[in-house]
Design a binder for these strands. Structure first.
Lengths: 162, 162
DNA sequence: TATTGTTATACTCTATAACTATA
DNA sequence: TATAGTTATAGAGTATAACAATA
């Protein structure tokens, strides 16, 4: 929906060929790469399994799937959201039987949020559908181009985690 | 803020080296690439010039910068938003003197929305800051790695536009 | 007394429906 | 009568402040 990152125009719009040249100005590369990344990310984000689930809800499910059971506070910190907002999100997810909230065994104040089987299935289904869209595109590339993307993916992960 | 796309765990978590191998399974590559793209996109999206401006507002400015003056209806269609929502967004942008609304010369019903000099500066500033973040990261790469990202960017643009 | 989670309330962004002005 | 834009009103999602229960 949002085009906030879709700044297509660039200062010097050179030919968009695949050929890598020797003298790559990082600033020019950055402008090109940003547009390409944002656009691809938006396309991928649009592909989700359960359209009735908000991004935030989907995100909580993904985090729980990756980390295992967490408390409200931990989830709120993870999502950079205030605890009352997370309470609301979790209430919605619990109502849809995607998570359960059980008392923390050691600390009576806390509640442990756990992914249900349905919640786990939703995470996997979303992932599968998003990957399916991208896989179809990758299938149409040359092996050489896929190799480039494989290397780029590793480099991008390093950059994003820096 | 949203971690919805941050699904780090993958079915077969192989070594994350940069080496491109010959037999790249598109499905495995897709899972890797998606995580890398989403994460990098989120980092870049966080870098904007005016933090008081919402994504939707920033997006309208970017569209106007790219296309020139548009009407309310055209902007609403472009942003996949209903006209009343765009009215509200534009009222906010006009109040901050980032756009002006002038009567359409030919059709008295329409209003032409035009970017002001401040609006244009905001677009350029945002772009510059986002690119600056990425440029710093790219500066630390080998020329060879930058070449890979340059090729990957072109391929990703093709995929996103498909 | 400090912390976890919740409720109460308000603000932002978006939507639909109804209204005004122009074609 | 149809279209562009606006106003009125409602529904998500998130925030802060105040409250209850537990450490």
């Amino acid at each position: 929906m949002s085009y906030a990152n879709d700044m297509t125009s660039r200062p010097a719009d050179r030919a968009g060929g695949d050929e890598a040249v020797g003298d790559l100005d990082p600033a020019v590369l950055a402008a090109d790469l940003r547009v390409a990344l944002m656009r691809a990310a938006r396309r991928i984000r649009g592909e989700k399994a359960d359209l009735d689930l908000s991004d935030g809800q989907l995100s909580v499910l993904a985090v729980l799937h990756r980390t295992g059971p967490l408390t409200n506070r931990e989830l709120a910190d993870f999502e950079h959201v205030q605890p009352p907002s997370m309470t609301r999100t979790l209430a919605c997810l619990e109502e849809r039987a995607l998570v359960t909230r059980t008392p923390h065994p050691a600390d009576g104040r806390q509640l442990l949020v756990t992914l249900t089987e349905d919640g786990r299935a939703t995470v996997l289904d979303t992932r599968r559908r998003r990957d399916a869209w991208l896989t179809r595109r990758l299938d149409q590339l040359d092996p050489d181009e896929r190799a480039v993307l494989a290397r780029a993916g590793a480099i991008l992960r390093r950059i994003a985690d820096s």
